[in-house]
Amino acid sequence: VSGYITDRAGQRLQNYQGYLFPTVFDKRSNYRTLANDSDSFIADFSVWDAIIFRGKTKVVDGQFSFSFNVPANINYRFGRGRMSFYADDGINDAHGHFQDFIIGGSYTSAAIDDNGPEIRLFLNDTTFVSGGTTNQNPVLLALLRDSSGINITGRIGHDMVAFLNNKTGEPIILNDFFKNNLDDFTQGRIVYPLGNLPAGVNTLTLRAWDTHNNPTQSTIEFYVSHSAILALENLLNYPNPFTQETFFRFSHNMPFTDLDTRIQIFDMSGKLVQEIRTTINSPGFASTPVRWDGKDLQGRLLGNGVYIYRLLVTTPEGHQSTKSQRLVVIR
């Protein structure tokens, strides 16, 4: 699909640089009112509500182009579809629609595709690892990829759906939360806020379909620690052993929070040889890396050997948690 942005007189805006957000609809769906009120009556009406593609593409010099695969589970009846457009360049926006096309039937020569989408699940950001710790209000981040495109129609039971703790009777429908990547119908992401999760071990399973109606599901496990309790996991330094420098990292359950962070390094006799102090505020559950150059409190390079380090993290409310590990210096 190709097109261009115009002014009200129909002239192409050659200086328009921005993004276009197209939404493609199947044919109108027909409905009938229920006439629930005593003074109402039954009326037939139709709406464009069956979305088959929603994307994002660049507008360059007022022109745009995008492509997508039509899902196999459209309404095969032939009829007029609709494309709705919204564009924005940071200053001016634009909108429009196009209905001069017919959608329906099937393409018998389509390439064979028997594989469902690839699904990768995270909480808050892509540094989260299954089995990690989170608070009770994380954000689900799902990255999906399929060479045929992702199915968002929701027809014939093909919803993009998630289940918490295998509660199949309480599905979370995610079709409206899926967004394709820029200029790429083969991959996109879901960002969905979760809330008030129970403390302890939880699982989330996501099921999605491609445009050939092949399903895939993926599951992530995580431990919920309520925010009042600071939880630290996965403390490590890399590289380890190291020669010139190393970086400390850990995971926690308090994203978007200023965490007073101290790393104390001791030799094997228990003497404090270095203390690093910083404030960490990360959008996810993985800390930003803390660098150490291998020098002691007097600025001298430490000798070869094994050292113990202790992490001490304090929240703005005064809650504390500690964790310890070993590192090795090799010069």
Rank of each mutant, 00 (worst) to 15 (best):
A162T: 06
T126Q: 14
L204T: 13
K179Q: 13
S269Y: 15
D260E: 09
A9G: 08
D26Q: 07
T168P: 02
F41P: 00
P193Q: 13
K56T: 11
N237A: 11
L144Q: 07
Y238Q: 06
N137H: 14
S130W: 12
F122V: 07
Y223S: 07
Y86A: 05
N15H: 12
L302N: 05
R310L: 13
F64H: 02
E317T: 14
K179N: 13
S147H: 07
Y309M: 05
T216M: 09
K167C: 07
Q264R: 15
L20Q: 02
V129G: 00
H95L: 09
S148L: 08
A110E: 14
I190Q: 02
D184T: 10
I276D: 03
N151Q: 09
P193N: 12
N151I: 04
S40D: 15
D176R: 09
N281V: 14
K179C: 10
N75S: 12
G294N: 05
K295H: 03
N135Y: 01
G104W: 00
I280C: 03
T205K: 06
L144I: 11
T126C: 02
L301P: 14
H212C: 01
S40C: 07
T243C: 06
L174F: 10
S218D: 12
N196H: 13
K271W: 07
F122Y: 15
H212G: 00
N237F: 04
A199T: 09
T288L: 14
P198I: 06
G270H: 08
L194Q: 03
F101K: 09
D44V: 00
R291P: 09
R291L: 12
N15K: 08
D89Y: 01
L311E: 02
P239W: 09
I265A: 07
G96E: 05
V313F: 05
R145Y: 12
D88V: 09
F45M: 08
I276N: 04
T279M: 04
F128D: 06
I276F: 04
F285I: 14
G62I: 01
H158A: 05
Y16I: 01
H252Q: 08
P193G: 02
N180K: 02
H95N: 10
R310H: 05
V47G: 01
T211V: 11
N124H: 05
N69V: 02
R326K: 15
Q298M: 14
R12S: 02
A9R: 10
G105L: 07
F21L: 11
V306R: 06
E221G: 11
I172C: 02
F122R: 00
I74V: 13
R82C: 12
G18H: 01
G195C: 01
L194T: 11
A142C: 08
L13H: 01
V161G: 07
G81I: 09
I150H: 02
P316M: 04
